[in-house]
Design a protein around this nucleic acid. Structure first.
Lengths: 149, 149
DNA sequence: CGCAACTGAGTTGTGCACAACTGAATGACG
DNA sequence: CGTCATTCAGTTGTGCACAACTCAGTTGCG
């Protein structure tokens, strides 16, 4: 039976874990002068360059209200270029600059550092990821049913 | 072997899950006119009233930079009182108003709604909470070792 | 064609999260 | 007793996250 006690709640555990991981990234990403959300955008671009703002938003579940200023900062840091599409003037293509591509080298070691800090073996990581994905899916489905977009 | 691929990463799963749960709370807490962090403070006070700002901060791992304006908003909403201690003028005691106490009734149903949305049985919740707590602990220990307070 | 509906990016405003700081109150110690 | 370090709450500034909105560009459709 669920109660209103703070320490019963899975949600608080999730919130705490997420903040703890972000705090670790803050330290690790200091070298690269990136915040965690900026690092996520860079990850997406390192994986596949030349993306529309819309597509980055879909992958990270972030809207233009978050991405526009974030991309402006990445541009100011010299890491990405932004160009409107010729065939659709509404759309903006985001591309890595040479500096942005080069930064990938400095990021190579990060996943292992984070992995070590989490103290999970590969199985543990995979299991937890699967559970978290299922949880996200379930929660989003419930919310969308209750509060239709 | 950890890689820089976005969809490999446990951290992104954690970040996504945390945002999904917060988005669900946003809908559920609409009735109470509370944000999720405000709800956490109310939970802490419903559990034990009359707390110093410092103690709330310790329980929720939030500093005064976050709590001071949040408590100001809870006060403006008529839910809490804030009074400086007579024996230590630095400390501020946070107490529930009658309205704040009464709001608890409206919150009684929330844990079950969230539980249903997450689609986990009691065992699943307990297991996940344990894993998340362990993860938080491990990550915080690593970070504190690497970047001493 | 004409125009209404929609789409994509951006802006504005609110509220967290956190670093860095201020300033008053307290405590420790020679 | 004096003074120096510490503690506590609050403020300021930056950067997400998100709702609500604007506005130009595009599409659909009669």
């Amino acid at each position: 039976m669920a109660s209103l006690r703070l320490d019963d709640q899975l949600c608080f555990g999730l919130y705490s874990a997420s903040r703890a991981v972000t705090a670790l990234y803050r330290v690790v990403l200091e070298d690269l002068d990136l915040t965690y959300p900026q690092y996520l955008v860079m990850l997406a671009l390192w994986e596949r360059d030349n993306r529309l703002v819309k597509d980055l938003g879909a992958e990270l579940s972030l809207d233009s209200g978050t991405l526009s200023p974030l991309l402006k900062r990445l541009h100011a840091a010299g890491l990405v270029e932004r160009n409107r599409q010729a065939d659709d003037e509404r759309a903006v293509m985001v591309s890595l600059s040479e500096t942005g591509k080069a930064l990938r080298e400095k990021a190579e070691g990060i996943p292992d550092v984070i992995g070590t800090a989490m103290g999970l073996d590969d199985d543990g990581v995979a299991r937890m990821r699967a559970e978290l994905d299922r949880l996200t899916e379930s929660v989003n489905a419930y919310r969308e049913a209750r509060s239709p977009a």
